[in-house]
């Protein structure tokens, strides 16, 4: 509701949604503030600043929830194969093979795991599942979830 109150509340649907739906989607990170053109008009400048302030911790939590320290990684690939999101986009990963799809969350390159698509992680909206498989099975504690 706090987010909704700061929106223009005109239901102009220029973003494709009503303002209430837009507020919900903002929290779920399915839309960005930039999707609402009205917010960038001068009269909403103060509201926009407040919205940014309000949403920052939410954004930050999700963005930094998963951390991979490449200097600790040995490229074992446990994260690649155990990650359910990886398996769903690249079925050969389910058989222990390296991930060749560009759509995966993790892939091992030059001997270390890399995060290719963080937004595919199940911890992100819309799933928002408290999945910690990669962290749990990392041999070297290179992966940490905050």
């Amino acid at each position: 509701m706090d987010v909704y109150k700061l929106l223009p509340k005109t239901n102009c649907k220029k973003c494709g949604h009503t303002c209430l739906a837009f507020a919900t989607k903002l929290i779920l990170r399915e839309v960005k503030l930039e999707d609402c053109p009205l917010l960038f008009e001068d009269k909403y400048a103060e509201n926009l600043a407040k919205l940014r302030e309000l949403l920052e911790p939410v954004m930050d939590t999700y963005e930094t929830g998963l951390k991979l320290d490449e200097s600790k990684c040995t490229g074992c690939g446990n994260c690649v194969v155990v990650c359910p999101a990886n398996v769903s986009v690249d079925p050969s990963v389910a058989r222990g093979m390296g991930a060749n799809s560009e759509e995966v969350v993790f892939r091992v390159e030059d001997g270390v795991a890399k995060i290719v698509n963080l937004e595919r992680c199940r911890r992100f909206p819309p799933d928002r599942i408290n999945c910690r498989m990669c962290e749990q099975y990392c041999y070297s504690k290179a992966i940490e979830i905050y």
Partner: peptide, 12 residues
């Protein structure tokens, strides 16, 4: 240029 899927030992 790039080695995919090999672990640290293999890439080395």
């Amino acid at each position: 240029k790039k080695v995919l899927h090999a672990c640290a030992i293999g890439a080395k």
